[in-house]
Design a binder for these strands. Sequence first.
DNA 1: GTCTATAGCTTGATAGAC
DNA 2: GTCTATCAAGCTATAGAC
Lengths: 236, 236
Amino acid sequence: MGNSAGLSAPGAGREPRSEKAEETRERILDAAEKLFARHGFYGVTVRQITRDAGVDVALAHYYFGTKMGLFDAVFFRRAEILNRERIASLNRYEGNPGAGGPSVEGVIEAFVGPMLDIWAAGGNGWSNYFALLAQVNNTPDWGGETMARYFDPVIHRLLDVLRTVLPGATEEDLLWCYQFLSGAMLLAFAQTGRIEKLSDGRMKSSDVAAVRARMPRYIAAGFRAICVGNSPPLYP
Amino acid sequence: MGNSAGLSAPGAGREPRSEKAEETRERILDAAEKLFARHGFYGVTVRQITRDAGVDVALAHYYFGTKMGLFDAVFFRRAEILNRERIASLNRYEGNPGAGGPSVEGVIEAFVGPMLDIWAAGGNGWSNYFALLAQVNNTPDWGGETMARYFDPVIHRLLDVLRTVLPGATEEDLLWCYQFLSGAMLLAFAQTGRIEKLSDGRMKSSDVAAVRARMPRYIAAGFRAICVGNSPPLYP
DNA sequence: GTCTATAGCTTGATAGAC
DNA sequence: GTCTATCAAGCTATAGAC
């Protein structure tokens, strides 16, 4: 699914757009982001999107060609930002790992931190986008491929840094652990309302602080349990 | 989404069905399971399902009323089995935790084991079903609610057993850790093809043994890191 | 850039013959 | 139980006026 290649912007390099046009484009993207995140690609019609955006149906096709083109544009818009932030964070961490030197926790925090910061900074757009990522990540057949197309460079960068703090880890161990990380992280970001149900309304899916306090340590412990020595696990 | 209440079978208590009719019903369910898993509820038409099943369109409505009724029936069919197996496994473990006495690893294995066994035993039906679960689990708004309706009793049972091996854990810690477990586990079961892409084809999403060797220990380590003491984590 | 109008299909669902 | 036939509604996408 999707056909914009790699990390080059779909529709990039166009002549300068008028301010009004740019705003219209963004309104369509925002509405599409929200609705795709909630109901998936097929659960939404172009008409619903443009109605939500307050613009004419035909404009969606004018700006994005097809419904799929619109989906790709939504997916791409924030992927670019996300990738930049996470690469920068990993680079910063490698350059200066802090007091006790590099650690698994540190690397995971450097990777997850930017997303937590963005989430904490608020904005419905990002919340919707995270929910969309979780859905695509868990879509069989083309989900893995789509995630790979947009995010694999960052993930390979993460794996490189992880290898420096987990020198004995096998490739299999590292990749499976990343898969677990990916599932745990994106479900937490998706805000599905499950935690509300389980806790009888006492806890909130939107509690960023709660996730920040637990997720990096949870994930780092998992990596160490698998990638350091073997059963029984050793904790250096 | 969905409206069959609790764990009572939708359409249960009907008069005895003929064998041929029962087979037709199952064929529709199998096709629907496969296609819903691959493309989501809205990504599939009733016509595609019945075509795949080799039966007439009208029969889907005859047996299941609406498209949503069909979806509910698909979701319910295996949920019942899954719940029974997991409850039985947790009971067995509580009755006989094995040599070293009860442990976090043991509880997690008792919970995840039945799903790994079912997966290992093969059958496309179950693979499709797991993929469907992963999708619903990651669906915002109604995903959490739907999962809760079908699976919360088992999860509360799991949490009860976990409390006995993690006596000091707070409710918040336990529930967030479960949320991470849920995301990691279902993504691994969804076979999205991501691991193939990341490993350049050297690893397979369908490698049950690889998941069995790692996931329980990964998850147990995460629980211990969060639910035992506080930073820095202590490993008993 | 924006809108109207519409082409050309497909959809979920049902009525009724067999 | 199964199939044919069909309906009303909604869909993506486009052509062309402004």
